[in-house]
């Protein structure tokens, strides 16, 4: 227990942890503030202004139409050809219709909690995952690199225990931060929606759905933390995790993408990691094979391949466990 508490203290004392946490909080706060500034709560005044605007636009269009017809008639009287320029019958049939002008177009942007908070959860998960990656990797990578791990192992000569205790400390911090910041994030976005947007139709079911999405976001953050920690420990350097992440990203998102396109692999996107990330957040992600249709023959429902969040959990879970197992095997077997 003392080692666990020590590692929590060590993690919280680290300058990088504090700096990244400050950046994370500032970044999230910045997004919330920007959202608040860009969103306007729509009330009678905004609707009246929009109506006035749309009426003005409509009247302007009518005047413009009438002017065009008059110009056309004048040109005809001068013996000029008008059909090409004004259309047949001087374009009389193109009278602007009032129904074509909707006041909604002239309303300012209003943030809608129900339809848009899912995106906000994804943004939150992305930001905290980046934090988790950098903190998880550097916490153990810097320890290896500066000799801190060796010093610690002289005091606690149980390699796997030390490594896993460090990991437990990182995950505790990430879990705590994920939950606390997640609640603050939800509160901040709700305040934005409450005072500058819309909280309409926020039923208990919607909140439950957001809660489940939030749990999946926290799960992603923890998995990213474990993978970064494991990779940095394997390479005994923070850069190992960063390099591996860039390598896997390039391989998956560029290499495999190109390969499956060139080879015309059916539903080739199922071999790309980002598909599983999308499925994780969206609950499911549907891949469509447009090549299965011959549109010349008329309507067609192209073949689909659905990636579920459970499949994503399996892919990311297996990857995470493999990296962690390799890190534990490595620290037990390799000389220090």
């Amino acid at each position: 227990m003392s080692l666990y508490v020590t590692e929590l203290r060590r993690l919280s004392k680290r300058r990088l942890t504090r700096l990244l946490l400050a950046l994370l909080v500032l970044g999230l706060a910045g997004i919330a503030v920007a959202l608040g500034l860009s969103s306007t709560k729509i009330g009678p005044a905004q609707r009246a202004a929009a109506e006035a605007q749309v009426e003005s636009e409509y009247q302007q269009a009518v005047r413009s139409h009438q002017q065009n017809v008059a110009d056309c008639e004048a040109a005809k009287a001068r013996g000029e050809k008008t059909e090409e320029r004004f259309g047949p019958d001087c374009g009389r049939q193109w009278v602007p219709e009032r129904e074509m002008y909707d006041a909604k177009w002239y309303l300012p942007y209003e943030f809608d909690m129900r339809s848009e908070f899912g995106l906000m959860i994804a943004a939150f998960a992305g930001a905290v995952s980046l934090f988790a990656f950098l903190v998880g990797a550097s916490f153990v990578g810097a320890e290896w690199n500066t000799g801190g791990m060796m010093n610690l192992l002289l005091w606690r000569p149980k390699r796997a225990t030390v490594l896993l205790t460090k990991l437990a400390a990182v995950l505790s911090v990430l879990l705590g931060l994920g939950v606390v910041l997640g609640l603050l994030w939800t509160g901040a976005i709700w305040l934005v929606a409450r005072f500058s947007g819309s909280t309409a139709k926020m039923t208990a079911g919607v909140w439950e759905s957001f809660a489940i999405s939030g749990l999946r976001a926290v799960g992603l953050v923890l998995a990213v933390g474990v993978v970064a920690f494991g990779l940095a420990s394997l390479g005994r350097h923070t850069a190992m995790a960063l390099g591996a992440a860039v390598g896997v990203g390039v391989l998956s998102e560029i290499g495999i993408q190109l390969a499956v396109q060139l080879a015309q692999v059916r539903f080739g996107q199922r071999y790309v990691l980002s598909t599983y990330a999308l499925a994780w957040f969206e609950k499911k992600w549907t891949l469509v094979d447009h090549r299965s249709c011959e549109f010349a023959r008329g309507m067609c429902n192209p073949a689909e391949f659905v990636v579920t969040w459970q499949q994503s959990a399996l892919v990311f879970g297996v990857g995470t466990v493999l990296v962690l197992a390799a890190a534990v095997w490595s620290i037990r077997r390799r000389d220090i």
Binding site: T6, R15, T146, G147, M150, R156
Partner: peptide, 28 residues
């Protein structure tokens, strides 16, 4: 057993007191 092996290596951004304090904490 107290030991130093090879050149001294410590986390550069911690103070000496922090460094020893954390070791003391880890070692009860």
């Amino acid at each position: 057993v107290g030991a130093i092996v090879e050149s001294p290596q410590f986390f550069p951004h911690f103070t000496a007191r922090d460094t020893l304090d954390l070791l003391a904490s880890a070692g009860d």
